[in-house]
Every structure is written in C-alpha cells, then in structure tokens.
C-alpha cells in the first residue's frame, strides 16, 4: 500500500506558510506531547484538554482557543475510536499553533469519503458513548486554517493542522 495525502487550507495558506509560521526562537516556542491509547474512552480528550488550558494561559483569543480545543478533541477521539495507539503534539509559536495527531491504526482507505459529514465506520458501542457521528474530520477541517491528512491503510494516519495567530 502507499501513503495518500490530502490538504485543505484557507485561501492564501499553503505548506510554505505553515513552514514559516512554525519557526521561532527556542524561547518563543512551546511544545507539548501527550499519548493517546486506542479504546480508552475515559481518557479520550485528556490531551486536548491540556493543550486547551495551555493555549488559554497564553492569552490566545477565546474564539481561537475554542477552535483549537474542538479540533484537538476530535483528533484525539478519532485515534481512541479507530487506532491502536497514537500521540497528539502541539507546537505553539508567536505566529501559529501547529498540531500533529499521529496514530498506528487501520488507516483511511478513502480520505475524501471520510471528510464527508455523516460518513462513519464507528461501531454501535462507540455511538452509544456519543461518538461516531461522522463529524470528526469535518469538524477538524471547519475549525482549522490548514489541515493535511496523510494515511496508509494498515499502517496509520497522521493529521497535521494549524491555527494562524497573525494575519497572512
């Protein structure tokens, strides 16, 4: 199998913008990384919660904090629902908040389809917990300025998404 990749970005934002925004002097950059355990629903969202708290403390505007929280939460829930294990990493610079959610899991056979609101392969057990509405990836895309989805069936999925803190 091969890795597939798809990028969604706000107008005027591309890989170069993200490359530039994620740079910064070491004393201006904060990084946080949390593990995600597949199937551990009681802990799902714990990493997102910590990232949200950190971002809030950095005096990021409340509307951006909410977008970061929602996207990180959805990313983390996806890993919990579908994958074996993963990590959520956030890099905060003066120009942006950049998040990577990487997992070892089944991968996404059709990224376009997974992006359709309502599309889900979640089990009834997962739905009973209030998850699996098929809005995970769409909610992430909706709340981010840049989203790259990379996936290989049988290997895993890597989401990279960003929130710009300055006008571009």
């Amino acid at each position: 199998m091969a890795w597939r990749e798809r990028i969604w970005a706000r107008e005027g934002v591309d890989d170069d913008t993200i490359e530039e925004c994620t740079q910064g002097q070491p004393d201006q950059v904060i990084e946080i990384e949390k593990p995600i355990v597949g199937g551990d629903f009681a802990r799902a969202g714990a990493g997102a919660s910590e990232i949200k708290r950190l971002v809030k403390k950095l005096a990021v505007p409340p509307a951006v904090v909410r977008r970061v929280a929602v996207a990180c939460f959805e990313g983390e829930v996806n890993v919990t629902v579908y994958a074996t294990r993963g990590t959520i990493k956030a890099r905060i610079t003066p120009a942006c908040i950049f998040v990577v959610v990487a997992d070892e899991g089944p991968g996404i056979p059709d990224i376009e389809q997974a992006m359709q609101p309502g599309w889900t392969t979640a089990t009834p057990e997962v739905r009973e917990m209030g998850f699996g509405a098929g809005l995970g990836l769409p909610n992430i895309r909706e709340n981010t300025d840049y989203l790259k989805v990379r996936s290989e069936v049988g290997t895993g999925t890597i989401l990279e998404f960003a929130f710009l803190l300055r006008d571009i």
């Binding site: 629903f41 969202g45 919660s49 939460f73 209030g130």
Partner: peptide, 15 residues
C-alpha cells in the same frame, strides 16, 4: 441524555 464522562470532556472544550 448522555450521562457519560465523554460529555464532561466536551463541556470542558466548549467552556
């Protein structure tokens, strides 16, 4: 009607 811990996480995310 979802009295599960997951709701509390969502509550935290949205304040």
């Amino acid at each position: 009607g979802l009295a599960k811990i997951q709701i509390l996480r969502a509550a935290d995310m949205l304040d």
